[in-house]
Design a protein around this nucleic acid. Structure first.
Lengths: 233, 233
DNA sequence: TTTGATATTATGTGCATACATAATCCAGAC
DNA sequence: GTCTGGATTATGTATGCACATAATATCAAA
């Protein structure tokens, strides 16, 4: 016959939220150590595992830094992570309700470019593909891509029909990569393809895809001005 | 006398990697159900908990979809998630090795703008702040910000000295927000501040910060062309 | 055929426990 | 004083178990 109030037992989400609240309220200011997992477990009346789950989640969000033996401290510079969903181009366009269109502009073996935004370069000769993506018949983005020439199945890939974007994602394994945005003036060819004035501002997305530490493909996508990439905090 | 080779016991990372490998190798093609946690646990000779940890991690990466009772299936459209680290401007600049500089351009109470890229608008009157961030003495980015006028402490905030960017992050709690990139032609004022030609392309980042569902602040950061935002896949 | 209650199933979460690992502290050797 | 190696400590991970929850499947009643 304990005086146990039988309050809803804390789940890891509640603990996470409560800790977040305390951090935001400055109960635990930036840079400060917060109580040990064991202490929190006792306070919340749950197992250490549960507290661990909560704190791990906050660490993934960048709100706290955790180190073995060092304990958990509130992140000094709360580097927020924004998450950006990258879909294949067709998906991206169809999601807006528009009809997707695709046209191959050129394709051929070439020496890869020297500089790739992500760092290293290609090992071998490359397939260079330029293509255009349409939304409701209007040019939407130019895809300018180099692909490692040694990828299996590349010779048979039907790039007249399917965008390299799509083919690669569905046929070639990769382990990671980098991605960068920039604003530029449209190059003449690109402007012509996008059907915009010669020096209009365009949004470019450079993506380098790696398999291990080998560059599989590098692509520059060029969007007309006005296009927006959305992410959530 | 089993033929047990006493191989290093599988940790959740190994399991995660092995599953990822199988998915990439198309052992389990997109859309396909993969074996149950229990089955995998048996195969890998570990507890279900461990498999759960691995699969959960893959689900967070968007590589698989999991549903109770429905099982785990390989994501049909492998929406990759790119993660973008957002630091405060000073940090961002100092990280490149440059010296940070800041100048307040204007500040005053104004009616908030009607359209905010993130969706809803402000409830009340706003503080409108325009400021410039410098890297090694050269203009780096323009910060054009609206702040909910009712935030506590706002009147005393020393925006001549500290950027709103920094002050807000360190003083005002928030729960989430959205963020979007676009390329534009620099508006005349902005071009002047950035010391670039009148219609140069610029990269803009619009950020809306929420606390619950109330808009705390909305900001447009304008970077000179050539600036890159990097993210990792 | 439809409906709705019920059983089944796969994942989700929590707990107690144990051990692993990294970082730090600290005593003792030199 | 400095260095080194072990004790200490907080987090990291794994396990077996139990029960929760959501979604489906099944089957009987209307």
């Amino acid at each position: 016959m304990t005086t146990d109030t039988k309050q809803a037992r804390a789940g890891w989400r509640e603990i996470r939220d409560e800790v977040r609240r305390r951090i935001h309220r400055r109960d635990w200011p930036p840079g400060e150590l917060i109580p040990h997992e064991t202490a929190l477990a006792e306070e919340f009346g749950c197992a250490r595992t549960t507290v661990n789950r909560a704190l791990r989640s906050l660490a993934e969000d960048g709100l706290v830094d955790r180190r073995r033996k060092g304990g958990t401290r509130v992140a000094l510079h709360p580097v927020r992570r924004a998450v950006l969903d990258i879909a294949i181009m067709r998906q991206e366009i169809e999601d807006t309700g528009a009809t997707y269109g695709y046209r191959l502009v050129q394709s051929g073996i070439e020496r890869p470019p020297a500089n790739i935004p992500g760092g290293k370069g290609f090992d071998a000769s490359c397939l260079h593909v330029v293509a255009l993506h349409f939304a409701n018949g209007a040019p939407y983005a130019v895809e300018n891509r180099w692909i490692d020439g040694r990828l299996p199945g590349l010779d048979d890939a039907p790039f007249e029909r399917i965008s390299a974007n799509e083919w690669l994602l569905e046929n070639i394994p990769y382990t990671g990569g980098t991605l960068s945005f920039a604003a530029e003036q449209a190059a003449p060819d690109t402007a012509r393809l996008l059907d915009i004035a010669a020096e209009s501002p365009v949004l470019t997305l450079d993506r380098v895809t790696l398999d291990g530490d080998r560059v599989v493909t590098a692509v520059k996508l060029t969007y007309r001005a006005g296009h927006r990439f959305m992410a959530r905090l």
